[in-house]
Simulated scan of single mutants.
Amino acid sequence: MIEGLAADIIVIVHLGFIVFVALGGILVIKWHKIAFLHLPCALWGVLIAFGGWICPLTPLEMHFRQLAGIAGYDGGFIDHYVMPLVYPAGLTRGMQIAFGVIILAVNLFVYARVLVNRTKQGNGRTLS
């Protein structure tokens, strides 16, 4: 029972991580220091998407599911949990790369905006 709960917690953490990777840059607009956490996470997410790798959280979840006597699944987390919501046909390599490009583009846009805003604020300051 505890193993099944652990697997479910990993799923929630995994989904939260994916949302943070995709949209966490928006938090950086308000709280700049979050960039120190978000940038490595976003880089990891993009590398996973471009490399076609499986996130280490997926095998960990599978391990706990097997310990709980629950059948695992083939493929990765996104393919099993997220893709059926978006693309019922399943995750293809092209879609995985597209997600990586979208994540990269959104974050580049957000970080460019943050840098432009910081530059504008820096130029408007006076020395006292």
Rank of each mutant, 00 (worst) to 15 (best):
G25C: 12
L15E: 05
V82Q: 05
N107W: 01
L15R: 02
L15V: 11
F50L: 12
P56I: 00
D79T: 15
G51T: 09
V116H: 13
V110R: 05
G72Y: 04
Y111V: 14
Q66V: 06
G16T: 07
L43Y: 12
D74C: 00
P84I: 05
L37M: 10
P84Q: 07
N107H: 08
L115H: 08
E3L: 00
N123W: 09
V21E: 14
H63F: 09
G94Y: 07
G100S: 05
I26K: 07
P84S: 06
A22W: 14
L115K: 14
Y87S: 13
T92K: 03
L60N: 01
Q66W: 06
P84W: 09
F17R: 01
A49L: 10
I26E: 02
L15M: 12
L39F: 14
H38R: 08
F99G: 12
A6Q: 02
I54V: 15
D8N: 11
R93C: 00
I2D: 04
I78C: 02
A112K: 09
Y81C: 03
G25D: 03
A105K: 02
R113P: 00
R65Q: 07
I103G: 14
I97Y: 05
P88H: 07
G51V: 11
T58I: 07
C41W: 05
H32S: 15
V21P: 12
Q96H: 04
V106N: 01
G94F: 08
A35N: 03
V46A: 12
I54E: 14
V13W: 04
I102E: 04
H38G: 07
A98R: 02
G124I: 01
I97W: 12
V110I: 15
A105C: 04
G24Y: 12
Y111L: 08
I48S: 02
L5R: 06
R113T: 08
G4Y: 09
V13R: 06
W44C: 06
